[in-house]
Amino acid sequence: MTAFIQGLPKVELHLHIEGSLEPELAFELAKRNNIDIPYESPEALKLAYEFEDLQSFLDIYYQGANVLQSEQDFYDLTMAYLVRCKQDNVIHTEIFFDPQTHTDRGIAFETVFNGIHRALDVGESELGISSHLIMCFLRHLSEESAIDTLEQSLPFKDKIIGVGLDSSELGHPPEKFTRVFNMAVEAGYLTVAHAGEEGPAQNIIDSLEMLKVSRVDHGVRCVEDDKLLARLIEEKTPLTVCPLSNIKLCVFDDMKQHNIVELLRKGVAVTINSDDPSYFGGYMTDNFLAVNEAHPMTHQELAQFTLNAIEGSFISDEMKNRYREQVMDYVSKF
């Protein structure tokens, strides 16, 4: 099954580009930009990636982002992720970026955007990986800050497919951002939001109803509400689940307790994603392997994760058909 998973075409819908910053690249960029890192080596930094919850991760995540200063830095970061995508047979990715993490440090919005977007162009032309870019608002900051970020994004609107909501879920419910999401929809953006990871199932409901999201990022606590679960199945609402992340952040104690396969078999449109792979110990193939090891599946069930992601992506119907055929052709060989 390992060979099948490695070769399976994959689509990633939940990836924070800043969370793909590997320790080795962090040290390289720190040296380039003359920035001190409070660790002796990449290995020592990696050892610090032991988290008790989401907040303990975010503290080190934002610290790591400080090494990102120039357009070239963001280009190098994104290209490193795309190379991993190629190795894992990711054919399409929809990448989150957090402008406020950088603009609050005095880095211009266009510096961040231009570096990431330039790499995505190269990823498509040279690696054959299609992509979309989603701008996330940091929910621990004010809605006013989110509105300001939305306004900064408008000159680049033709190259940003949607907006999302990430960072600390507890204490920052969806209704805090209803106004800015309405403004984003009026500007032509699609919407997604993190919900039901640390926060309750009600956050998923509120994201669907208040923020008009096309899909829910994480969403694993949907099982706490039978009515919501039935709605997700009926409406085929995609959940972009991140298995290794959920274990690392103690959402589940171990992968055998994870509910992703149970949800898949109930008919929920769950997908597998890597979230912040540098910090959580795995990219796409690693996540597939970990889930299958804990919950052995058939070839068709594993492929269904990709088929769900294709259907839940923001690509054209023509591309969806092409990618579906690619997956089914692959499965038929087994």
Rank of each mutant, 00 (worst) to 15 (best):
I35Y: 04
I35N: 04
I35W: 08
I37T: 04
Y39Q: 08
E40R: 13
S41I: 01
S41W: 05
P42Q: 06
A48Y: 08
F51I: 10
E52T: 15
D53Q: 11
L54D: 13
L54P: 09
Q55V: 15
L58P: 10
D59M: 12
I60R: 08
Y61T: 12
Y61F: 15
Y62S: 07
N66A: 14
L68P: 07
Q69L: 11
Q69P: 02
D73K: 01
D73Q: 00
F74S: 03
F74Y: 11
Y75G: 03
Y75P: 01
D76M: 12
L77T: 04
T78K: 04
T78V: 04
Y81T: 08
Y81I: 07
Y81V: 01
L82P: 04
L82S: 11
V83I: 15
R84W: 00
K86N: 09
K86P: 02
D88Q: 03
D88M: 02
N89Y: 01
N89E: 12
N89L: 00
I91F: 01
I91K: 11
H92A: 10
H92T: 03
H92R: 12
H92F: 11
T93E: 04
E94R: 06
I95V: 13
I95H: 07
F96D: 08
F97C: 04
D98A: 13
P99G: 05
P99R: 00
P99N: 01
Q100T: 11
T103C: 05
D104F: 14
G106N: 04
I107S: 00
F109L: 00
F109N: 00
E110K: 05
T111M: 02
T111P: 02
T111D: 00
V112L: 09
N114H: 01
N114G: 04
N114P: 00
G115N: 01
I116L: 03
I116M: 02
R118T: 13
A119T: 03
D121S: 08
E124K: 13
E124R: 13
S125Q: 10
L127T: 13
S131Q: 04
H132N: 12
H132L: 07
L133V: 08
C136S: 14
H140T: 08
L141S: 09
S142V: 09
E143N: 13
E143Y: 08
E144P: 05
S145P: 00
I147C: 05
I147T: 12
I147K: 15
